[in-house]
């Protein structure tokens, strides 16, 4: 791990925090979306598996020790025990998976494939951890917990598309990131 890797990890942890400051947008369906999870997707797509995953681990570590960095100014260890704790745990793993999939390509993967990668890691993995956790904490069945979460998926898809557009342009400008 070089100094540059350490700095990039810190940069994307900070970017994820900064994206949480953007006021949330409420979709037509009444579901709020925040820009924060784009930080997770960008970290994976731009930094790769190891650095991207560590960036999000670092972000969550700072949240856990009490910095109010989650969207809406939340922070502290409590958020991990709440209903959305599983989604938070899914963040670094999702970033890692996105990075892992991108790392398999020497250059930039094609647009559609990139989008699939971001959706697998940034949505698939995150819900895979988030939904069962929610079911456990709230004593719901998996089906009930999933139905309760599905309203957030359209927002996540929009963020995945934005992430892919941004990541492709940034990689074009900085090929040896």
């Amino acid at each position: 791990m070089t100094t540059k890797d350490t700095v990039y990890i810190a940069l994307f942890a900070a970017l994820t925090a900064a994206l949480g400051l953007i006021p949330q947008i409420t979709l037509a369906t009444g579901v709020p979306i925040t820009a924060q999870s784009m930080g997770i997707m960008l970290a994976g797509a731009l930094l790769g598996a190891k650095r991207g995953g560590l960036a999000i681990v670092l972000f969550l570590a700072l949240v856990a020790i009490g910095l109010p960095l989650l969207a809406g100014g939340r922070g502290g260890a409590g958020v991990f025990f709440g209903a959305s704790g599983g989604f938070l745990l899914g963040f670094p793993i999702g970033a890692f998976v996105i990075g892992f999939l991108f790392d398999r390509h020497a250059g930039r993967p094609p647009f559609l494939l990139s989008l699939i990668y971001v959706l697998i890691g940034g949505v698939g993995v995150v819900y895979l951890l988030g939904v069962p956790w929610l079911a456990q904490v709230a004593d719901l069945t998996l089906g009930q917990a999933f139905t309760g979460s599905i309203a957030f998926v359209p927002g996540d898809i929009i963020k995945a598309v934005l992430t892919v557009i941004i990541a492709r342009e940034v990689r074009r400008a900085l090929p040896d990131l």
């Binding site: 350490t6 940069l11 942890a13 900070a14 900064a18 400051l21 670092l58 960095l69």
Partner: peptide
Amino acid sequence: LAISLTLRFIPVLS
């Protein structure tokens, strides 16, 4: 170092 850098970058990126 990474923790300090993150705290240093957050205001910049905000």
